[in-house]
Computed example of a mutant assay.
Amino acid sequence: MECGLPSKQLVSVVGGGRQARNVEVGSKLWSLDGTRTVQTTVVGISAVKAREVVDVVTDRVTFTVAPQQELHTAEGWVPAVHAAGTMIAWTPARKLCRVRPAIVAGYEFGYFIGATCADGTVGKNYVSLVVNDESFAMRYAECLTEATGLAARLEPVTRPSGFLGRDVPGFRVRVVSSYLSDALRQYVGGDAHHMRQRFPRVVLRDLCTFEGFLDGYVEGDGFRHKKWDGRTVVSANVPFLQELALIIGARFTPRPKGTASALVIADRWPARGTFTAEWHPLEPVESTWVEVRDARLRRAAGTKPFTLYSYRLDPHPGFLVNGHLARQVW
C-alpha cells in the first residue's frame, strides 16, 4: 500500500514548513492530540516510487499526498482518495510557531479573567487593559504574569474623557499573545465584546479561582459598599449577570432594556452553598474541521514517477500537512 507525500509537498515542521524530501530523522513535526497541537519526532524515513498521487482540495488549501495516505476525518482515518465530502482535522499553520504559555488556575488567574471581562480588550493577537487607577493596573499586570508567565508592565497613557471633555492620564497593560487571546475568547463563548460575552465558567474550578474572578470583576465594573458588607457590579450584559447571580445564589432583576443592571454580591454569599466547582480546560482549542471539497487523482506525466516520502514518528503517529492531520501506517 503506497502512502506518503511527494517530494515538494510542504510538511509542518517545528520551526517552519519544509518540503517532504528535506525532512530528516530527528526532525520534529507538528501533530494534533485531540484538539491540542503537539510535537512528534521522526525516527524513520522511507521513500517509494509511484505513478499516481491525489490532490486534496479543502476549504483552506490544496495539498498532495499518496492515494492511500490516511487523513483524520470526523468519521475516523480515511485514505485520501476517498476523502471527498468528509471533514478533516485542521489547524492554522501560521499559528504553529507561536509561544504557548502555561496557564495556571488560581486566584490570580480568576482576577485576570474577571478584570478582563469588566474593563479589558481582547484583540486578534493581544490582551490589554486601560484604566485610570494605577493600583488596579498594577495588580492586573501582576496577576496576568502569575497566571500565564507572560511579562506584563504598566505604560502611562492618556485617553479622552467624555465627562470632562479633555484627555486624562491613565495606565495600560498590554501583552501580545494570540494563544492567550484565543483562550480568552474561548472562555467567554467565542465573542469577547463586553455586551456579548458569556460568563467564563472556567473560573469555577475552585472557590479560590472564583473569588479572584469576583475581585477582578468588581474592581472594573463595580464597587464596595461603605455601610454594609457587600459589593455591587453594574453591567448591561444581562445574561452574564443572570448566570453570575445563579452561582452566588443572589436575586437579580434586570433593568429595562437599554439600561445597565446591578447585581449585589453579599460577602456572606458562600454560606448559601450555591457554588459548585466545575472543570473546564484552560488551554484553547487549536483545531477545527474543514471540508474536503475534492480529491483528484493525478498521474505522473511522462516516464518519471513521483517519489513518496513516509515517516515513522514517535510518540504521536500523526503529522500535519499544511495544517491538515495525516498519519503513516507502518
Rank of each mutant, 00 (worst) to 15 (best):
Y140S: 07
G212N: 03
E142C: 09
T40H: 00
W77D: 07
L154Q: 06
P281M: 05
A105H: 09
V81S: 10
V131E: 09
V290A: 02
Y179A: 08
T145S: 13
Q69S: 10
W269P: 04
G26P: 01
W289K: 06
L184N: 00
R100K: 13
V78A: 00
S7H: 12
T158M: 14
A183P: 02
G15I: 07
L164P: 10
R293M: 09
R166Y: 13
P67R: 04
V61D: 14
L325P: 03
V233Q: 00
L263T: 01
N132L: 11
T307S: 04
F136W: 15
P79F: 03
G106E: 06
A183E: 03
T73M: 06
T116V: 11
A80D: 07
N22I: 08
R100Y: 08
T307L: 08
E286L: 01
D229E: 12
E219F: 09
S31T: 15
P169Y: 14
V130K: 10
T40M: 00
R185N: 15
I248T: 01
R272G: 08
R139C: 08
V264F: 12
A250F: 09
V48H: 05
E278V: 11
R174D: 07
F63P: 11
P156S: 14
G26V: 05
W289I: 03
C208F: 13
D191G: 07
G17T: 11
G212M: 04
L214Y: 00
A80Y: 10
A262S: 13
R327L: 06
F306G: 01
S46N: 09
E286R: 02
A301W: 12
T288R: 11
Q328I: 13
Y107F: 13
Y311I: 04
D33C: 12
C3M: 14
A301V: 15
N22F: 15
T274N: 06
V14G: 01
V42I: 02
L282Y: 01
V25K: 11
V53G: 03
A141F: 07
R60L: 10
V264W: 11
V48K: 10
D229N: 11
I113Q: 02
H324F: 13
R60V: 14
T116I: 06
G34Y: 05
R312D: 15
F223N: 08
T259N: 08
T35K: 11
R94E: 13
K28L: 15
E219L: 13
N22H: 14
L150V: 12
T307F: 00
W289C: 04
G26H: 04
A260Q: 11
F163E: 15
M195V: 10
A236Q: 07
V233G: 00
R51S: 13
Y179K: 07
L71V: 15
F109H: 06
A83N: 03
G4V: 03
R51M: 09
A84M: 03
L5C: 04
F136L: 15
F319Y: 15
I45G: 01
S310W: 00
L154Y: 08
R100L: 08
Q68H: 12
R98H: 09
G110V: 05
L263M: 01
P92G: 01
V25R: 10
G165S: 11
P200K: 04
R18M: 14
R272Q: 04
A152V: 05
Y126I: 04
